[in-house]
Amino acid sequence: MPGVLPDATARGAVQNARLPGASRPSRRKINHRYLLFLAPALVLFAVFQAYPIVRSLILSFQSREGGELAWVGFRQYERLIGDPNFWLALGNTLIILVIQVPLMLLIALVVASALRSSYVKLKTGFRLIYFLPAVTALLAYAIVFRALLNGDSGVANQIIGMFGVEPINWLGDPFWARVSLISAVTWRWMGYNMVIMLAGMSSIDPSVREAATMDGANAGQTFRYITVPLLKPVILFCVVTSTIGTLQMFDEPYILTQGGPAGATLTIVLYLYRTAFKSLDFGYASAIAWVLVIIVMIIALIQMRLLRDKDDE
Rank of each mutant, 00 (worst) to 15 (best):
T124Q: 08
F126I: 04
I129H: 02
I129R: 01
Y130I: 01
Y130M: 05
L132M: 15
L132V: 15
P133N: 08
V135W: 08
V135H: 07
V135D: 10
T136R: 09
T136V: 10
T136G: 10
T136K: 08
L138V: 15
Y141Q: 07
A142V: 06
I143S: 12
V144K: 04
V144A: 13
A147C: 05
A147F: 13
L149M: 07
N150A: 03
N150F: 01
G151C: 00
G151S: 10
D152V: 12
S153T: 14
S153L: 12
G154M: 09
V155L: 15
G161M: 05
M162Q: 15
M162F: 11
V165Y: 07
V165N: 06
N169A: 12
L171N: 04
L171Y: 06
G172A: 08
F175G: 04
F175V: 07
A177C: 08
A177P: 13
A177G: 11
L181G: 04
I182D: 01
S183Q: 02
S183K: 00
A184V: 15
A184I: 11
A184P: 08
W189N: 05
W189I: 00
W189D: 07
N193R: 02
M194R: 01
M194D: 00
V195M: 03
V195S: 00
I196E: 04
G200S: 09
G200I: 11
G200C: 12
M201P: 14
M201A: 07
S202K: 12
S203G: 03
S203I: 03
I204V: 13
D205E: 10
P206W: 10
S207D: 14
A211C: 11
A211S: 14
A212M: 07
M214N: 08
D215K: 02
G216S: 05
